[in-house]
């Protein structure tokens, strides 16, 4: 593995051949990174390009350029119904999982209590269980108890697998906070609630937002668990899966690409805002 360290003081004195080698190994890793990113983005590019495909039922072969599908993203039957279900499920599951997960993170990071090991294990296990097992076990449970499958069972399942990811994200943020900030607030006669509201919470907020974004993207993109527990309710990934057997309408690519650009824009905007605030 070609890897070097930066700013070694001895570097300037080294012979030319060695410096050339260093230059190459420096750039080797950059070249490698370019290839890595290409690998990451080729399928995204394909999805985007094929959203302009003038295709009929199947979108596997190129049939000429058109912007019709972008002008009419709901043109294919059921695609927008599936999308709106996915958005609704994602928003509800994210809201609930973020609240529950943040509470657990605070308990773990800020309190001593019995049963910490059991709690940690209960948080870790859903992440260490393959989705197909999570899906199958929930379906077995719902069948046993007699819960009708549908919108509500999807939401229940999504909250379940999102909680752990929120806990991990928020806990990491809490662990990286400087405890002296809270001590300072207390020294300045803030009571515990004021300290929490004015100091702790604003500082943890980026972690909570990151956890919520993670939860939403996991929920929105989930197929396996949803497929087990959805009954006849359609979600966007389920729509793509079902239609992949018969041929996916290009509208699915339009929605996939649009989600990509919206999310990218939102993340970059968020970064710009935080940078400005810091400046």
């Amino acid at each position: 593995m070609a890897a070097t360290t930066e700013s070694l003081p001895a570097r300037a004195k080294r012979p030319v051949s060695q410096r050339a080698g260093r230059w190459l190994s420096n750039n080797l890793i950059r070249i490698y990174a370019v290839f890595g990113f290409t690998y990451l983005f080729i399928p995204v590019g394909y999805t985007f390009v094929y959203s302009f495909n003038n295709s009929g039922k199947s979108n596997l072969n190129w049939r000429g350029f058109t912007t019709d599908k972008w002008a009419n993203p709901c043109g294919a039957p059921d695609v927008c119904n599936a999308l709106s279900n996915s958005l609704k499920i994602g928003l509800i599951a994210t809201a609930v999982a973020t609240v529950l997960g943040t509470m657990i993170a605070f308990a773990l990071a800020r309190h001593r209590f019995r049963g910490r090991t059991v709690t940690n294990l209960t948080i870790f296990l859903p992440m260490a269980t393959p989705e197909v097992v999570l899906g199958a076990s929930l379906l077995a449970f719902f069948l046993n108890v007699g819960v009708p499958l549908g919108f509500q069972t999807i939401v229940i399942a999504h909250i379940m697998f999102c909680i752990s990811f929120v806990v991990v994200t928020v806990k990491a943020r809490l662990a990286s906070l400087d405890p002296r900030l809270e001590q300072a607030a207390m020294d300045l006669y803030a009571d515990e609630w004021q300290t929490f509201r004015r100091i702790t919470f604003p500082l943890v907020l980026p972690g909570i937002v990151a956890g919520a974004l993670l939860a939403f993207s996991l929920s929105f993109d989930d197929f396996i668990i949803t497929n087990f527990n959805s009954g006849d309710v359609n979600t966007f990934p389920k729509f793509v899966w079902v239609s992949s057997l018969r041929g996916i309408p290009a509208q699915a690519n339009v929605i996939g690409s649009a989600m990509f650009f919206i999310a990218l824009f939102a993340v970059l905007l968020g970064q710009a805002v935080t940078r400005r605030r810091r400046a």
Binding site: F37, L40, F41, I42, P43, V44, Y46, T47, Y50, L60, S217, D221, F223, F236, P237, V240, W241, S244, I248, A252, N253, G256, S257, M259, F260, I262, A263, L264, V267, L268, Q271
Partner: peptide, 28 residues
């Protein structure tokens, strides 16, 4: 650095099923 990090997460936003189907086309 920040831009590259965003780019690592970015493919996530396109449905993973759509990206897998894209591989089906690429490797056809």
């Amino acid at each position: 650095r920040n831009l590259l990090l965003v780019l690592v997460i970015a493919p996530f936003f396109t449905s993973f099923l759509l990206r897998t189907i894209a591989w089906k086309q690429i490797l056809a």
